[in-house]
Write a protein that binds this DNA or RNA. Structure first.
Length: 552
RNA sequence: GGUCUGUUGGAGAAGUGGCUUAACUCACAUGCCUUUCACGCAUGCACUCACGGGUUCGAAUCCCGUACAGAUCACCA
């Protein structure tokens, strides 16, 4: 046994602390019964993935609804794949969706909380303490196999059809005597540290997943690498040490981790740490050529959260969508609690689906549209402005130039039981209403009338309408005026009458409205005409009608 | 290939042995309403719960097998 201690001292001569010291440094959290401590632990290798947002959001939700703690830890143990600035970028995108931690990594220079550091590369000393202890106990050992050796081992195993990997008799270095290992180390040979597994593949272990329930998995017998030659631990080991000392109660992560659960449980076990509860979330999928696959950042635009941010999907609408795929009873709850915030919904593991949902953009759109339609004019203006400030300077200018005017446009048929549902995202607003601004109106090209309307007839209608135009009237009376102008010019008062006797009329009142609409908007489809006229005001309407007459 | 997980309509799903002639939402289709659009309203869209067998008076729901799909098998997380 002293040989192991000697070995441990040789490898980590500077490590003086013990696990007990660490336990003291990171005492238990003083939380109420039932409070969940969750964490989101991204690696800074790119921008935020939709699936990661899903995970992070759910972690946060569980923590907040139980009055617990949600923290962020940066898992940057792979320096080769690390992208500079990615950590902060990730956090910024998370924040855009209102997902932010109460503890942990906040930026490259800022952290919150007493369980830090929250960046794994800064915790190297902590891992070393635990690894040193493992070596002392003979439960971990240095491995000197080169990647070439490992590759050829693999080839042999594949050729002989045995399970691949570094285990049992194939784990060459586990049989090295400590003296031999020390010799090699003194000799300057490069090495990693492997966990010495005492597991047997044939043994089944019972595990419990909060979402999937009781499962039976094979025991781990692989001597996995826990400490890389670059001096940093691997994920399997690092997350375990961190979740232990940070006192995570629930590890909520993607389904792809389920197969490695036995490794983690085994590690907890041999260290004598109590394992947290695990919940493995289904992965968001996409169909391609009839096959399902994970949303892929390379192939699918919607896999990057920035896709939705850029286009101005309301972020809470997007979260609501995520909630519908997380807990299917969310939709029902929402329709019964229209006035409540999505954060009032209580998320449960038991209602979580086991297989990954196909990402449904149509549904996202529907939810966002519904949400935007229920906002007040002030709210939608605030939101549009905030979005425009980052993503659309033109819109920002438009709103800022006259906020009241913009609000008036937003307010058309808003409010009440059945509001208009014009927009699903903020980038649709400006194109839809640009004609209300002279600058855009002047630049626009005029749409042609439908085939029933001749330019001559349109001119006549517009000229006659100018004579009777009175925007102070209420909508009904205003519309009656429009009707009578139509009648004078040979248009039926309503569609029914026109249909009854098409030959007697040029068209119907809808056509008359279209003439006016095209005159003031240059397009055939707009929100309610009466309101547009009122907002534009008498003078502007008059000017646009006159201009139209002149070019027809 | 091994291991694990899953399979109810185009999508998300409810359903845990009789209340299901399979809820609800989205999508789609048709019609109505309507000054355009957007709404709204109405109707339709799984003669059946991957398939095959079994248990039972009775099965989407329990058991077995098959098929299919996904995840995973790194000094990446």
């Amino acid at each position: 046994m002293d040989k192991y201690i000697e070995l441990a001292e040789l490898i980590f001569p500077d490590v003086k602390e013990t696990i007990a010291d660490l336990e003291k440094r990171y005492p238990a959290r003083n939380l109420k019964e039932g409070a969940m401590v969750t964490r989101f632990a991204p690696s800074p290798t790119g921008f935020l993935h939709t699936g990661s947002l899903f995970t992070a959001f759910i972690c946060q939700k569980f923590a907040t609804q139980s009055n617990g703690v949600f923290y962020i830890r940066l898992e940057d143990t792979d320096q080769k794949r690390e992208i500079k600035g990615a950590g902060e970028a990730l956090l910024k995108e998370l924040k855009a969706f209102n997902v932010y931690p109460t503890e942990g990594y906040l930026s490259d220079t800022l952290e919150e909380g007493i369980y830090g550091p929250y960046v794994q590369s800064k915790r190297a000393d902590i891992y070393k303490v635990v690894i040193k202890e493992l070596i002392k106990r003979g439960q971990a050992y240095p491995c000197f196999c080169s990647s070439e050796e490992l590759a050829s081992l693999r080839e042999v195993q594949e050729a002989t059809k045995v399970r691949t990997g570094y285990y049992k008799e194939y784990a060459k270095c586990r049989y090295l005597k400590p003296e031999e290992a020390m010799e090699k180390i003194k000799n300057g040979d490069s090495f990693v540290i492997r966990f010495k597994s005492n597991g047997d593949e044939k043994n089944k272990i019972a595990v419990f997943d909060e979402i999937r329930g009781h499962l039976e998995l094979s025991e781990n017998d692989q001597d996995i690498v826990i400490y890389k030659s670059d001096g940093l631990p691997t994920y399997h080991f690092a997350h375990l040490v961190d979740d232990h000392f940070m006192h995570t109660t629930h590890v909520i992560r993607g389904e792809e981790w389920l197969p490695s659960l036995p490794i983690h449980l085994q590690l907890f076990n041999t260290l004598g740490f109590e394992a947290p509860k695990y919940a493995h979330l289904p992965v968001i999928m996409k169909v391609e050529n009839g096959n399902r696959r994970k949303l892929s950042k390379r192939k699918d635009d919607e896999a990057a959260v920035s896709f939705f941010l850029k286009q101005g999907y309301p972020t809470d609408g997007f979260l609501e969508y995520l909630l519908t795929i997380a807990n299917s009873n969310y939709e029902e709850w929402r329709s019964e609690n229209l006035d409540k915030s999505l954060y009032d919904f209580i998320l449960t593991f038991s209602k979580m689906s086991l297989d990954g949902a196909l990402f449904d953009l149509d549904k996202v759109k529907n939810i966002c549209k519904e949400l935007l339609s229920r906002l007040t004019k002030e709210e939608i203006t605030d939101r549009a402005l905030a979005w425009a400030n980052v993503y659309d300077k033109e819109l920002e200018e438009v709103i800022l130039s006259d906020r009241n005017y913009f609000e008036a446009i937003m307010n058309i048929e808003r409010g009440g039981e059945k509001p208009r549902k014009d927009y699903t995202k903020y980038d649709e607003i400006l194109p839809a209403i640009s004609f209300m601004y002279d600058k855009y109106y002047n630049e626009a090209t005029r749409e042609s009338f439908n085939e029933r309307i001749s330019n001559e007839s349109a001119k006549e209608v517009l000229t006659k309408y100018l004579e009777v135009m009175d925007l102070t009237k209420d909508e009904v009376n205003w519309f009656n005026d429009l009707k009578s102008v139509g009648v004078i010019c040979g248009y039926a008062e309503n569609n029914k009458e026109y249909k009854k006797n098409k030959d007697a009329y040029k068209g119907h009142v809808g056509d008359v409205a279209e003439i006016l609409r095209v005159a003031i908007a240059k397009r055939r489809q707009t929100p309610n005409l009466y309101h547009l006229l009122k907002i534009l005001g008498k003078e502007k309407v008059k000017a646009r009608i006159l201009e139209t007459i002149s070019v027809l």
